[in-house]
């Protein structure tokens, strides 16, 4: 089993509304873009227009946060239909979402909530991933989330669950090495064992991101440079590949586009130079993100850019 013919796109970044004008005006030499699907599927305005133009010039991947694959609620086929249309419209290279649930009883918490890691949940998720893949007519790519709690009913480790899921549902994997790092601290497991145990032939994409150490736990705040420990995991994961699509997630306190681009290119630099992972200015900075954890994916790009202020006469 190979990676479903999903190509190595190189080193990409998220397309965020703060950078719309920069990207259109400067055509930066970034390899590819990832979008948060929910920020575009209903847009009939500037965001959708920008996306169409970006998709003409760059490979685009769709990354979702509301599929709620692990929820006991029925699948939302209205949502999946829109996802499918957008994927066709922009020629999305692939569609990904998370191993999580986001709500139940018709609600959406807009968070990536953990599922119990046991046989019952596995069967449920496998069934749903298969249904979604049939509907979207393409393999789904599932990401490991970061998590902050675990259930007494867990009977397997997350990597065991992912192995079984990928095999039984025949789906791809998006390995977020920052999430592995974050969860390894929060749950006290060995991140190296996690990485080494994955079915790397199914890993289509890797995420790197910044996080915040809160003393008692780590939060994946996506608000700064990638930490050293995460780069170490990235390098370890890359030993299993001869090149895998790599994307930097940075959603809060977003810097200027060139800074963002330079951050993801660090991966390229030290992978080829075989140097030590770059030092981040502050290892594991303690920051306001601990109490809020508010700046996650779904918020990114949801609001109009300030450059489009209304005018009146």
């Amino acid at each position: 089993m190979s990676r479903f013919n999903y190509p190595n796109l190189g080193f990409g970044v998220g397309l965020r509304h703060q950078h719309f004008n920069y990207v259109l005006d400067n055509r930066p030499r970034v390899d590819w873009f990832e979008i948060i699907s929910e920020n575009f599927i209903d847009s009939r305005g500037w965001p959708r227009h920008v996306l169409a133009r970006v998709a003409e010039q760059y490979p685009v991947v769709m990354h979702g946060v509301s599929m709620s694959v692990g929820s006991a609620d029925p699948l939302d086929f209205g949502y999946l239909t829109r996802l499918k249309h957008l994927a066709r419209e922009i020629g999305a290279r692939w569609v990904s979402d998370h191993l999580c649930w986001t709500g139940i009883l018709g609600r959406n918490t807009h968070d990536l909530l953990p599922i119990p890691l046991n046989e019952e949940a596995l069967k449920h998720v496998v069934r749903r991933v298969r249904t979604i893949q049939d509907f979207l007519e393409r393999p789904l790519v599932m990401e490991n989330p970061s998590s902050y709690l675990s259930f007494a009913s867990d009977t397997m480790r997350e990597w065991e669950f992912l192995n079984a899921l990928a095999e039984e549902a025949d789906c791809g994997l998006l390995l977020d090495v920052n999430n592995v790092y974050v969860s390894s601290v929060n749950h006290g497991f060995d991140p190296l064992e996690y990485i080494e145990s994955l079915p790397h032939e199914r890993v289509v994409q890797i995420h790197v991101a910044g996080h915040t150490h809160c003393g008692t736990h780590i939060v994946d705040t996506h608000d700064g440079p990638v930490m050293r420990g995460v780069w170490e995991l990235y390098r370890l994961a890359c030993r299993h590949h001869d090149g895998v699509s790599t994307l930097l997630e940075w959603d809060s306190s977003l810097p200027e586009f060139p800074v963002l681009h330079a951050e993801v290119l660090k991966a390229k630099d030290y992978l080829t130079a075989d140097s030590s992972p770059p030092e981040s200015e502050s290892l594991e900075h303690v920051a306001a993100g601990c109490s809020a954890r508010a700046s996650r994916h779904a918020l990114a790009g949801a609001h109009p850019p300030h450059s489009s202020l209304p005018e009146y006469v």
Partner: peptide, 26 residues
């Protein structure tokens, strides 16, 4: 919800509770 080495089960749930409200308010 089992405790971690540093947090009780309730404290682990509280991470999600705080972020639910903080995210929507933001």
């Amino acid at each position: 919800v089992i405790p971690s080495e540093t947090l009780t089960g309730a404290e682990r749930l509280a991470i999600y509770s705080r972020s639910y409200h903080a995210r929507l308010l933001q």
